[in-house]
């Protein structure tokens, strides 16, 4: 079967600045695909190329078999796009925004209500409120409704959860899962590593290049280096002390623990002894399961 999104050696520069270079990706129909990377990694540029808004300098891409440059008119009929910046009419009410976007896609809210029902029900109490007066989470739900109302085959969501509270973020991902069950291909970008595990497959992107593409578990499993979670009474001194050692390859803060990657596998007692010698107390040390963030930092370091 043909992939829903196919990207072949896409590159884009703005003047002298390289935004994307040699991007190759395939996203299957009905897949929930995550683009994970920090701000400025090139996620938005890739979205704008795939939604046919931006011409790439190199390479080609197809969405549902349609060429993003040659068939841009056809692409615009079958995709839904939610830009990173809130881009609805702030001075129009919730209902007016949704009606407008339904109409320009030649449909009505009633016709496709089943698609947005679950999301829209939460918005319904505020349907006469101006979009600009909604909370961050509500804005994102409305934007998703507007992107969905014409039943797109492929949905592009650029950082839909940025600036949204933790509860709304969780809800948002629940919605995406249900949409995927309807067979809609979803490409979503996020700077939050913890959201990566909610996707079926992810691409780690940094500096305009893709570092790795795989299922989230496969990516974390690929991390073969010894990893420990450490904490002591003095968190900050611990960070500095570990970074000074020869055996530590990388020390990164991770919640209340530090993630310590050592160059070679070594007995836990050896590390504990070192910490005791440095005068640390309340030492807790255990092997840690690698996360996407560990992989990301590792890939960034090696490339």
């Amino acid at each position: 079967m043909k992939p829903s999104i196919q990207i072949n050696q896409i590159g884009k520069t703005y003047g002298d600045v390289m935004a994307l270079s040699d991007i190759n990706l395939e996203v299957e129909t009905g897949e929930l695909f995550g683009l994970i990377g920090p701000d400025g990694a090139g996620k938005t540029t890739l979205f704008r190329i795939l939604t046919s808004l931006l011409k790439p300098n190199a390479g080609e891409a197809w969405v549902e078999g349609l060429h993003t440059v040659k068939d841009y008119k056809k692409i615009r009929r079958i995709i839904g796009y939610m830009p990173g910046k809130f881009s609805l009419y702030q001075d129009l009410s919730v209902a007016e925004n949704l009606t407008f976007f339904a109409t320009i896609f030649g449909t009505t809210i009633q016709e496709n209500y089943h698609l947005i029902k679950e999301i829209y029900q939460q918005l319904e109490p505020f349907k006469n409120r101006r979009a600009g007066k909604l909370s961050g989470g509500m804005k994102q739900k409305l934007a998703l409704c507007c992107a969905l109302i014409h039943e797109p085959k492929v949905l592009f969501l650029d950082e839909p959860t940025t600036g949204v509270d933790a509860v709304s973020r969780a809800e948002f991902w629940q919605m995406l899962k249900r949409l995927r069950e309807r067979g809609i291909t979803i490409m979503v970008s996020t700077p939050y590593m913890d959201e990566a595990s909610l996707c079926e497959r992810i691409a780690l992107i940094q500096g305009g290049k893709i570092l790795s593409v795989d299922a989230p578990e496969a990516i974390t499993n690929s991390y073969q280096k010894p990893l420990y979670a450490v904490r002591t009474a003095d968190y900050y001194r611990l960070l500095n002390d570990l970074r000074d050692t020869d055996f530590a390859e990388r020390v990164a803060p991770f919640g209340e623990f530090l993630h310590l990657t050592t160059r070679e596998k070594m007995p836990e007692q050896e590390i504990k002894d070192f910490l005791l010698s440095r005068g640390h107390s309340d030492i807790r040390l255990q092997p840690a399961k690698p996360t996407i963030e560990d992989v990301f930092l590792d890939l960034m370091q090696t490339t």
Binding site: L53, K73, R76, K85, L88, I104, C146
Partner: peptide
């Protein structure tokens, strides 16, 4: 400026 032009462009209009 508000980005809505992009949404209009990414539509069959």
């Amino acid at each position: 400026e508000s980005g809505t032009m992009d949404l209009l462009l990414v539509s069959p209009l």
